[in-house]
Design a binder for these strands. Structure first.
Length: 527
RNA sequence: GCGGGUGUAGCUCAGGGGUAGAGCGCAACCUUGCCAAGGUUGAUGUCGGGCGUUCGAAUCGCCUCACCCGCUCCA
């Protein structure tokens, strides 16, 4: 991305964030208390939009398919589940930072070094009557000049100088003492500087269960699930036994997951609490790779159906070495966000890894039994795992548009429109009486509202001029507005009676439609 | 986690140690026959939060929180 494009996209993203707040799509969590990092709340329109997305995903993947069933697992997760999956223990890398350069290093990957350590307690500068007290140390390798330690230490202490004009060379070091050490990993091999203590970066939220749980009672520890997948694997056998289903089949789930991300970024894109839409599709080992391809195509089609065109999506075939160790094939489906191309969904062929691990740790027989072939085995699994909140953000970014429109007087204005597909749009129809001070128009509009509202989310609006009301609906992405006028009431004869103006958002075109046909017309567009 | 930036009305932003501002939006009423029309009236702020300096802080200092940008990280 060029600098100019990058800046334009930053501005665009700012406008999207601003619109989302202004119109009630997304708010920062706990905003009146200063905000909670990495957490977001959906307002009235955001909640409708998200609901539409989840409902459509569920309908397409569960209700309209015989071979996929749904489930809804608990968020609090038994620690043994996550020990088996490898989330506890395996994925918490100890990290430390270089005190001099701030570089971050993996503590377990530092080569042990030997030499002389020079310790200091602080530094001062006589001329400016400045001093700092802080423990610091530098490692000098065998055969290296000891003055290197002093130079490095002065550089370190100079970071605390308020007057940056003072040269590090003019600092007096205090409390120097030295000792010989062997095989230490406490120093940065690059510059000899002391490192911070190693800290674990396990991204799981941990909690304790039970009212009287003892802080030291390890058995009371539970986790907020870091992915929905594990609850599916753990209930695999129960779902199998209660549903008379045969391979290949899937278990689908929509639900919240939690990761204590070090650095949440890009609006709602990387949040600490997020919702996933996931399918674990179980199959015979020999069908896994082909099903991965099939699911990739099916998922790409899904995005097109909700209004994210194929040309704004990228498929990344994760190469050997970058995939999780258990995966033979993984595709990432990415979207061109204004802040860059980022992942929406992963389609991963996970083999029998998860079921194998849970069989080992639980010591339970969770195999699939093929009665006809008289076979007993652990199925392989293909996992299309989509980020719900990320998809919402993609829908909003994709829909956002500023058009220049020219009015009758030739004046140019900007029209802000969200081009949501009727399927996803939070409000399907805006219902507008042409004038609010004519009771007959208002009553008729209210009748239409009552006619449609059991079937879809509609919005009644009588405030302000008709043009303004159209624009308000454009800004929240309402695909259709119907306007009740005097023709509707029969003032221009029976032919026009009980018809309304149907105004389409994207083209701004208008046509006449009978009230009796409205429901079917809109339902057809939004299914 | 590091570095830089920002934070004032619902939104966009101006101001800058001494009574809190504009535009847009919002609400009510009037007007209004289809694309942000006009008029009248009105509501809204702990100037992100805390501590300090000061007779007095939105303004200066320190701390902190959040967001944005660049690194870093992301099973």
């Amino acid at each position: 991305m060029s600098d100019a494009t990058s800046e334009k996209n930053t501005v665009l993203m700012g406008k999207i964030v601003s619109l989302c707040k202004k119109r009630g799509f997304i708010f920062q969590s706990g905003e009146i208390y200063g905000g909670l990092n990495g957490c977001w709340d959906y307002g009235p329109l955001g909640a409708e939009l998200k609901r539409n997305l989840k409902d459509y995903w569920w309908r397409k993947n569960v209700q309209e398919r015989e071979d996929i069933v749904g489930m809804d697992g608990s968020i609090l997760t038994h620690q043994d589940v996550l020990k088996a999956s490898g989330h506890v223990g395996g994925f918490s890398d100890p990290m430390c930072d270089c005190l001099l350069s701030n570089a971050r290093l993996r503590a377990d990957q530092i080569e042990p070094q030997s030499g002389t350590v020079y310790h200091y307690t602080g530094a001062s500068n006589e001329e400016s009557d400045w001093s700092v007290e802080r423990e610091y140390a530098v490692l000098v390798g065998e055969g290296q000049d000891e003055n290197k330690a002093r130079k490095t230490a002065r550089l370190f202490y100079s970071k605390f100088l308020s007057d940056k004009q003072i040269s590090p060379k003019k600092l007096e070091l205090t409390g120097e003492r030295s000792e010989a050490v062997e095989n230490t990993t406490l120093f940065n091999p690059e510059n000899g500087s002391l490192l911070t203590e190693a800290r674990d970066f396990n991204l799981m939220f941990e909690t304790r269960m039970g009212a009287s749980s003892d802080e030291n009672d390890e058995s009371a520890v539970a986790y907020l699930r870091p992915e929905t997948a594990q609850t599916i694997f753990v209930q695999f056998k129960n779902v199998l036994d209660s549903n008379r289903i045969k391979l290949p089949f899937g278990i689908a789930q929509i639900g919240k997951s939690f990761r204590n991300e070090i650095n949440p970024r890009n609006y709602t894109f990387r949040s600490r609490e997020f919702e996933q839409m996931e399918i674990e599709f179980f199959c015979r080992p020999e069908d896994g790779l082909a099903l991965t391809e099939e699911w990739l195509e099916r998922r790409l089609t899904f995005y097109e159906e909700i209004g994210i065109p194929r040309e704004h999506l990228h498929v990344l075939d994760i190469p050997d070495g970058e995939r999780a160790h258990y995966s033979e094939k993984t595709y990432d489906i990415e979207y061109e966000f204004p802040f860059g191309i980022q992942e929406l969904e992963g389609v991963a062929y996970r083999g029998a890894y998860d079921l194998t691990k849970h069989k080992e740790h639980s010591k339970k027989a969770i195999e699939y039994v093929d009665q006809e072939a008289k076979e007993k085995f652990l199925p392989h699994v293909v996992e299309p795992s989509a980020g719900c909140d990320r998809t919402i953000l993609a829908l909003i970014c994709e829909a956002y548009d500023e058009e220049t429109v020219t009015d009758e007087k030739g004046k140019e204005e900007t029209r802000t429109v969200l081009h949501f597909s009727p399927r996803m749009a939070p409000v399907k129809v805006g219902i507008l009486p042409l004038l609010k001070n004519k009771p007959e128009l208002v009553a008729k509009a209210r009748e239409i509202q009552a006619l449609l509202s059991p079937f879809m989310n509609v919005f009644y609006d009588e405030a302000g001029a008709i043009g303004r009301r159209y624009r308000r609906q454009d800004e929240i992405g309402t695909p259709y507005c119907v306007t009740v006028d005097f023709e509707t009431l029969g003032e221009s004869g029976d032919e026009m009676k009980d018809t309304v103006t149907l105004r389409e958002r994207d083209s701004m075109s208008q046509e006449r439609i009978a009230i009796a046909d409205l429901r079917a017309f809109v339902l057809d567009k939004m299914m």
